[in-house]
Design a protein around this nucleic acid. Structure first.
Lengths: 232, 232
DNA sequence: GCTTACATATTGTGATCACCTAAGCCCCCT
DNA sequence: AGGGGGCTTAGGTGATCACAATATGTAAGC
């Protein structure tokens, strides 16, 4: 009898369905966005019927989207067959952070030789969009823009095998990025994207790896020692 | 009109459904096994109805299993909405190989401090099972046993974030492992698992990393320079 | 002979329903 | 008053159906 939309507390952006996008893909994209921008509280059980009514679609596309998100580790499936955003623990957070550093440093190094002028220009545009979102205080858009910058860079490597794995890590850390950015905007922080872009332009692998690692650690690393993890 | 089971050429092992395993999980496990042991030819389109009739289940569990396998990168979904095992290219193979080395070396180093006597004994059992499968010429079982050995080791690390990513890489390389092992059994090869176990027992990180890397490269690395990739 | 248009068959997508398990709830008993 | 047992309800699983998009096979036309 309870309002299922309120029960799931999912207030999704009124995104419109794209052409040639199936309903299942649309639902997946909206849920993915909601998870990565911290709109779904960790620990709370999500139900197929609840999300279906909240999204005003039938159960079938929601089922497929949830199954896919579980496979991508954005959601976890409990033994009771309940599905939720996995709660964070300090140990898991540390493991995800170190894994991000390991994979993204390598992905950056693999992409570096394949950056041409057009790609560099595109990266500057994405970085500017990120800066604009941060300046506007739109944390959800800032999170998306930050990942879009990293992604556009990494996929420049031919036969890239790392980016899909990295995106899984993003989905696992995503729910806690909002707290990280809310905290981050209170302090001054170096513009690690600018450092990365400079290293790319200079074709300097060591400086690039350092900038990527610093970007990751600056963004979320300080959360490991704060109480924000358990509160989120 | 064509015989759909033959059309899909999926002759799955007559595995029995486990208790408390849903039909969808059962189908996923069988398809996963079939893919990883090279039983499904890359490039051929898989259909829901074809697999459903081959497995003698309805379409629904197959749909979910295929979706999940696409998310795990065991299968790829084309723009035409056809689903297949991704064909291999030399560039993709090289990327997957280097990524395996990067991730598994790190996973081994993270697991090393958490190996106790019981775990070491278990690893020896799994290694023996692998040796037995190789000796018996059962390539499918040897592939599974090899991965089981690596997996049991890596998951010893608390809050392990790497193993799910590594398993995705295994699923992508899996379809070509059969050719690798058929080739490998023709030659002498060092027992890298034994070297790894010795390094674990000696608590020697450098030797362990070297053994893991050598194990991976020995097993499949030589395929990169052979014509087996395109033939498979 | 090769291409193109059309008709047919196949397949993925989405909706709906039945069933069964699991969780929540209340009442009763101690 | 607290704990245990049965009842009620909710939710996941699996099956089936309708529809739209895609592929395939055929035949006509250049």
């Amino acid at each position: 009898m309870a309002d299922e939309a309120a029960d799931c507390a999912v207030t999704l952006a009124p995104d419109r369905r794209r052409v040639d996008e199936t309903l299942g893909e649309f639902v997946h994209r909206r849920l993915r966005h909601a998870i990565m921008t911290g709109r779904i509280p960790p620990g709370r059980a999500l139900t197929i019927r609840g999300l279906a009514s909240a999204l005003d679609v039938s159960a079938m596309p929601v089922r497929e989207a949830m199954r896919r998100l579980v496979a991508e580790r954005a959601l976890e499936s409990l033994d009771n067959r309940r599905v939720r955003v996995a709660p964070m623990t300090p140990a898991r957070f540390a493991a995800l952070l170190e894994t991000r550093v390991l994979l993204e440093r390598e992905a950056a190094l693999r992409a570096l030789p394949h950056v041409d002028n057009a790609a560099l220009a595109q990266l500057r545009i994405l970085d500017a969009a990120d800066d604009a979102a941060v300046a506007a205080g739109d944390i959800g858009r800032a999170i998306e823009a930050n990942f879009a910058f990293h992604r556009a860079f990494y996929i420049l490597a031919p036969a890239d095998a790392l980016t899909p794995l990295i995106e899984s890590l993003w989905l696992q850390i995503g729910p806690f990025m909002r707290a990280a950015l809310e905290d981050l905007t209170l302090h001054y922080h170096a513009d690690r994207h600018a450092e990365a872009l400079a290293a790319i332009e200079a074709r300097n692998p060591a400086a690039l790896a350092a900038a990527i690692e610093a970007d990751i650690r600056d963004g979320i690393g300080h959360l490991a020692n704060s109480g924000a993890l358990l509160a989120a």
